[in-house]
Amino acid sequence: MLRVEDLTKVYEKGGRGRKETVRAVDDVSFDCNPGEIFGLLGPNGAGKTTTLRCISTLIKPTSGNVYIDRYNVLEHEKTIRSRIGFLTSDMKLDGFFTPGYMMDYFGSLNKMAKEEIGRMKDLLFNELQMNDFVDKKIDKLSTGMKQKTAIAISLIHDPEVIVFDEPTNGLDVITSKSVTDFLRKQAGNGKTVLISTHIMSIAEKLCSRFGILVKGEIKELGTLKQILDRNSTDSLEDVFFGYVLPEGGSGVGHAQ
């Protein structure tokens, strides 16, 4: 199980004499269970990527901690990494290589045996319907194919926890559906899935629980029904816009 506890990340900005601190993530707590897809929703700059980077051990929390079972990111970085499959929103793979080669490369970096890499390649290529382009250079692939490759690479080591930052960003509806189907299947197989997105329609269909993050703070946490009931509305989008747009913009009054 993934547990985020009182996570705070403060950045320092500006040069000498003009230093200011920015609380990118402020006392955020939530958890995500095996078999569940948790959606971290928020506009750009809300702190989603910073939260996911802290979870994936790329950056260290200023305070608070992140746990996967009994391991935490401050003391067990390597163990956490072995259990996480992380996909960044801005990843552009080196166009010179093929998806097949990249899978071998990242499999080796994860200390996997050749046979194990081969087994995972077969599994992921089949599930993501990549077999037609595994030997083509990444440069020659479409955006959807590249995203499928990035997803496959991040999961080559068969992690228990999947952390994807905006996994459907910029994809056409068909690829987007195949990615969401794939994530649903992963959760069905008992994986813990955490995604960040600002696309409400996808979140509503895909996630079983949500956290709405605005200016580094969790404003809403719970199932879709809990959030809608609390805000007396039938649309997650309205709840979201209620926090993002200027006061009264969405017509939803929030239960504080």
């Binding site: 980077r53 994936s56 051990t57 790329l58 390597k78 990494r81 072995s82 996480i84 992380f86 960044t88 929103s89 801005d90 990843m91 552009k92 793979l93 080196d94 990242f106 970096l109 994860n110 200390k111 690479i153 991040s154 080591h157």
Partner: peptide
Amino acid sequence: GEKERGTLAIQLVNQV
């Protein structure tokens, strides 16, 4: 270049 492409992050979250 890898920073720019976001691929460095992926290497850093591996077992290396």
